[in-house]
Computed example of a mutant assay.
Amino acid sequence: MAIRRAKQKQQVIEKLSQVAPPGETFMACVHVETGPSPWLNAIFDEIPLVGMIVAFTRRFYFLTLTNTSIVVNSASRWTNRPGEVVAAFPRQAFPVSRINRATVWSSMYVEMTPGAKPTRLNIHRYWRDELDQLLSALPQAQIPAQGGAPTGQPQF
């Protein structure tokens, strides 16, 4: 099981290198999880079985920024190893909205399949540098300042 961020990124790049076109450059890799805010786990754990149900409904992914696209691949719940590619988007057309860059748990919504309801992705502070790299590569992203106050245009 990979625990260190560098090892996890290495595993993702090895996995994606098998299916990436020649000349693809990997720039950033971010580990994310779906579901409601992780802060709610303290409340959910107090209600019998609800905490376990919420934990098992969470999905884990890696978002990888390349020189041409953003690739989403699954991550194992138990070992955190990268799995199959779930989606790939051109960098200019990454369907992200409602980016909230918070102190510990940041979040954003991504439309994984066209026309579907956007999926909430939670990103821990441990992955902040990689998240910033990913967001800086997106032309439409509006990244809130460190204190939580938005900069530029309002978020949508």
Rank of each mutant, 00 (worst) to 15 (best):
L16D: 10
L16Q: 05
L16C: 09
Q18A: 15
Q18S: 12
V19F: 01
V19W: 01
A20Q: 00
P22L: 11
P22Q: 14
G23A: 05
E24S: 12
E24K: 11
T25F: 02
F26A: 04
F26I: 04
M27L: 15
M27W: 10
A28Q: 07
C29R: 06
C29S: 15
C29H: 05
V30M: 09
H31R: 14
H31L: 14
V32M: 04
V32Y: 03
E33A: 13
E33L: 08
T34S: 15
T34W: 03
G35L: 00
G35A: 04
G35H: 01
S37Y: 08
S37Q: 03
P38L: 11
P38R: 02
W39E: 10
F44P: 01
F44R: 03
D45F: 00
D45A: 12
I47D: 03
L49M: 10
G51N: 02
M52N: 08
I53N: 02
V54S: 06
V54D: 07
A55P: 00
F56N: 15
F56K: 14
T57L: 09
R58E: 08
R58F: 04
R58L: 07
R59I: 07
R59E: 15
F60G: 00
Y61N: 05
F62N: 06
L63R: 01
T66C: 06
T66I: 07
T68A: 10
T68W: 11
V71H: 05
V71E: 07
V71Q: 10
V71P: 06
V72Y: 02
V72K: 08
N73F: 00
S74K: 03
A75Q: 13
A75G: 04
S76I: 03
S76M: 04
R77P: 05
N80Q: 10
R81L: 14
G83H: 05
G83P: 00
G83T: 00
G83C: 03
E84I: 09
V85Q: 08
V85T: 14
V86R: 07
A87N: 12
A87H: 06
A88K: 15
F89V: 09
P90D: 14
P90L: 12
P90F: 05
P90Y: 07
R91N: 04
R91W: 00
R91E: 06
Q92R: 13
A93F: 07
A93Y: 08
F94R: 02
F94A: 13
F94P: 07
